[in-house]
Design a protein around this nucleic acid. Structure first.
Lengths: 149, 149
DNA sequence: ATTGCTGCAAAACGTTTGCACCTAT
DNA sequence: ATAGGTGCAAACGTTTTGCAGCAAT
């Protein structure tokens, strides 16, 4: 059965927070976890509509926030004023490099970065919640950048 | 005279890019450099209106992009889908910690971070353009967080 | 029975654009 | 003279909201 573990996690979270367990919320959860790569709330809504799933835009938006709260997905921002999400399920913490020419997003993991967010939060007297590290750059290799000039 | 050096820089940039030198652009430049802290384009527009300066919203938005291009100001994104700017004038490169409870923004400089963006870009075969490193955290000290629960 | 959720459409939000007029070159 | 900029209002795309009806508890 698909996303069995995620369903459990989400169910527990909903119960603890006195949120109701509804079929719509699980439809959104499944579609979000199935989505390859980064997606906007509306992208997901379109995909679900195409699959003839019955959800409203409002429910998609609201449920995605719940999924972020229970850490099944992450919220991202790549500098274009668009909220993007990605599944956390079975994935390592990583950061992003965005090509300023073509918008391509490359994920990377750098060990030198891993302890810094917690360390800096501590130094400043804060409790770390999350971090976002984005590098904006240009492809050196023209062939890899579809919109390279 | 105020922002003398910035005016020179902006003038040179405008000439090189075949952009025209207009009084409106310098009004926006001055107001942007005078703004304390981070501001949205609309915030700046309101401030300018209150000072009885005659600029349109469109000109403010467009000029801020020009100021980013010539590096007099930086464009920021703190995860709330709002474009914010801040003056670069006489300032060091720094990163930001955002309190998820009250929205307070703390700037910090960490030496361990300084070479990473370039290094990672090189490793991945890109030319660094810029980076954004945001830490989202909660105040440990309740007194410092005005909306702390 | 109660409280919270859903779906819809409308509103809100920051931002961008089209166009007629104006101005720097 | 002409290419480019300005200002206005309207359009835009994403996200949020109000509300009536519905469903989970």
């Amino acid at each position: 059965m698909k996303h069995e573990k995620a369903k459990e996690l989400f169910t527990d979270f909903l119960k603890n927070e006195k949120n109701r367990i509804t079929p719509e919320r699980f439809e959104v959860m499944e579609s979000a976890l199935d989505y390859e790569g980064h997606f906007g709330a509306d992208d997901l809504y379109i995909v679900m509509k195409n699959l003839k799933l019955t959800v409203s835009r409002a429910t998609v938006y609201k449920t995605l926030e719940l999924l972020v709260q229970c850490k099944l997905i992450s919220k991202r921002n790549f500098g274009d004023n668009l909220t993007r999400y990605e599944s956390n399920f079975k994935r390592k913490i990583h950061d992003h490099l965005i090509c300023v020419d073509c918008g391509r997003i490359v994920e990377f993991v750098n060990p030198k970065l891993s302890k810094l967010p917690k360390q800096i939060s501590d130094e400043l007297g804060f409790d770390l919640s999350s971090h976002s590290f984005n590098i904006f750059a240009r492809c050196k290799d023209t062939k890899n950048c579809k919109y390279n000039k």
